[in-house]
Computed example of a mutant assay.
Amino acid sequence: MTVRAKFKVQSITRTASWNGPGEMQTIKLNPVTSGSDENKAFFAATPGGSIDLSVVPKEVGDQFAIGQEFYVDFTPAG
């Protein structure tokens, strides 16, 4: 069974990497709340929560922008 949610990037924080040179980017996402009928439907099913994603490769962090929306699928791994 897979559960799908829709999250929106709320903030991106850059800090010094703890494991060597470079930066770590922390992307904070929260469930969508409005903006479309689809977002309202997702909000009705997932009214709260957050995802904090910390990435070191700059090319990964650069794929996220504040305000951007993402589908997040939760699928059992085992």
Rank of each mutant, 00 (worst) to 15 (best):
S34G: 04
G35M: 09
D37N: 15
E38L: 06
N39P: 04
N39H: 09
N39F: 02
N39W: 02
K40T: 08
K40V: 09
K40I: 08
A41C: 05
F42Y: 13
F42I: 01
F43Y: 10
A44S: 10
A45T: 12
A45L: 15
A45S: 11
T46R: 08
T46D: 06
T46E: 08
T46Y: 09
P47M: 00
P47Q: 00
P47S: 00
G48I: 14
G48W: 13
G49Q: 01
I51V: 10
I51N: 02
I51P: 04
I51M: 01
I51Y: 01
I51Q: 01
I51T: 03
D52N: 12
D52A: 13
D52W: 07
L53E: 04
L53I: 11
L53H: 04
S54Y: 08
V55F: 01
V55G: 04
V56W: 04
V56D: 03
V56I: 04
V56F: 11
P57R: 05
K58W: 07
K58T: 11
K58G: 10
E59L: 14
V60T: 13
V60G: 05
G61F: 10
G61P: 00
G61Q: 03
G61K: 04
D62K: 15
Q63V: 02
Q63C: 08
F64S: 06
F64M: 06
F64I: 05
F64N: 05
A65D: 04
A65V: 05
A65H: 13
I66M: 12
G67N: 13
E69F: 13
E69N: 06
E69K: 15
E69L: 11
F70E: 00
F70I: 00
Y71T: 03
Y71N: 04
Y71V: 02
Y71G: 02
V72G: 03
F74G: 05
F74P: 09
P76Q: 07
P76M: 07
A77P: 02
A77R: 14
A77V: 10
A77N: 15
A77D: 04
